[in-house]
Structure formats: structure tokens, C-alpha cells
């Protein structure tokens, strides 16, 4: 893992995002499905993942841009709920996630007499992002140091080590759980960290959950 070395140091990497406009826009649910099929996977990632980077503080009603748009602009709360329950955590690849989203919209449309359209609302604009990795200069070697660092580190580092690691960088588990397992030899904590579903809240909530886990582990090992 690029953020660690043989002496078990974990180096926090933050990230900064620039949003790129793809110039494709959907005004109804059919177009949404059609364009979902043709946009680059980076765009699927953007609307289901970097959403968290852009909503670091406020948890929105729906956990991805597609569900949010369908609810807010089309007032189709049934499809919004169905899209919101799709959990990227369950998918091993972005392509599989894309297929699920498309098939869900198609299935929903097959039961509709008319296609919900953004008559008064704004279209869905497909974007993607370019992510720049930024070394934070924060390095830790123990769980206590990790706990202190995670409470203060820029939330983009949490995003990078959890979200980017999983799907875009195709790592088997997030960077934190990999470090707990490989360097700190704490397999239980690593399993709990790996099982932490980051899609059910904001980055700040994720930070808070991780702090709780670390505190529990430190208390258990008498170092709390």
C-alpha cells in the first residue's frame, strides 16, 4: 500500500477535486438511463462517490446524485427510494454498479404510463472529477497516534483512504483496515473497519464512527 512502509508508518493522503462538466444532460428518467449507459465510469463514480466529498457536513436525504435529482426535480419518490437503496459498498466494480442503476430505472419505467420529466426543475448534468492526491504530512505509527490524527485530519483524507481506495483504485479493502491488519496486527479492528459502510452518512459521521472504534480498541487493550 503506497501510504505505508516497512516501519509501519501510515501516511495520510488528502485529496482535492476539480469537477469537470461532461456536457450531457438528462431531462427525464429515460434519458437518465440512456446517458448513464454511455458516460465514462468516472462519471458514475462522481455521482455516487465524490458526492460525499462535496457534502462533507450536511447529510442529504438521498445518498447519491441520481436519487437526489429524481426526488427533488422529478418528484418521483418511488424511484428515488429505489435508487437510494443501491449500496455501492455491495459492488465490486463501477461497471456492475452502473448496470444495477440502469436496470433499476428501466424496471421502474416499465411500470409507468408516462416518463417523469423535469418540467419545472433543472436537468441532471453529468459531471466527473479529477482528483489530485495531496500529502498531508501527517504520519502515524501507533493506534493512539492514528486516533489523534483522524480526529483532526482534513476530511478529504478520510474520503481518499476509504472511497478512492475501494472502487477507483481497486484496492481490496480500505487503506485504514489494511494498515490495522498488516502493520498493527489488529485483525478484529481491521475487520470492523472494513465492514464499516461509508455510504450511510457523511464524512464527518464516518470520522466519528472511526473514532469510536479506535477508542473502544484502545480501552480494550488498556491504553485508552
Amino acid at each position: 500500500m503506497p501510504t505505508t512502509d516497512a516501519d509501519t508508518t501510515f501516511r495520510f493522503l488528502g485529496c482535492s477535486e476539480i469537477q469537470e462538466i461532461l456536457g450531457k444532460q438528462a431531462v427525464d428518467e429515460r434519458q437518465l438511463a440512456e446517458l448513464l449507459e454511455e458516460v465514462p465510469l468516472d462519471s458514475v463514480y462522481y455521482h455516487t462517490h465524490s458526492y460525499f466529498l462535496r457534502s462533507r457536513f450536511i447529510e442529504r436525504t438521498y445518498p447519491n446524485d441520481f436519487a437526489q435529482w429524481v426526488a427533488q426535480q422529478l418528484q418521483d419518490h418511488v424511484l428515488a427510494e429505489r435508487l437510494s437503496v443501491v449500496d455501492p459498498f455491495d459492488f465490486q466494480s463501477l461497471e456492475a454498479l452502473r448496470e444495477e442503476l440502469i436496470s433499476l430505472i428501466d424496471d421502474h419505467l416499465s411500470g409507468m404510463r408516462t416518463v417523469p420529466r423535469a418540467t419545472f426543475g433543472t436537468p441532471f448534468y453529468f459531471n466527473r472529477s479529477r482528483i489530485l492526491e495531496v500529502p498531508t504530512g501527517i504520519e502515524v505509527q501507533t493506534l493512539r497516534e492514528f486516533r489523534d490524527a483522524i480526529s483532526d485530519v482534513d476530511s478529504s483524507a478520510i474520503y481518499f483512504h476509504v472511497f478512492e481506495a475501494h472502487l477507483r483504485l481497486q484496492r481490496e479493502e480500505n487503506d485504514f483496515s489494511a494498515w490495522f491488519r498488516g502493520s498493527l496486527k489488529l485483525p478484529d479492528l481491521a475487520d470492523r473497519m472494513k465492514a464499516l459502510n461509508p455510504y450511510l452518512g457523511s464524512l464527518e459521521r464516518l470520522r466519528s464512527n472511526m473514532l469510536t472504534m479506535c477508542d473502544e480498541q484502545l480501552a480494550k487493550s488498556g491504553r485508552g
Binding site: I18, Q19, E20, I21, G23, Q25, T122, P123, Y125, N127
Partner: peptide, 18 residues
Amino acid sequence: VFSLPGFAQRLPIPKFLL
């Protein structure tokens, strides 16, 4: 670079949102 996606025109160069 545009302030909103809806403010942009179709262009063959990359368009960013800021």
C-alpha cells in the same frame, strides 16, 4: 471554466466547474 453546468455551451475542450 463555468460557474454552473447550465451556464456552459457545447465545446470540444474540457469544461470545468468552479
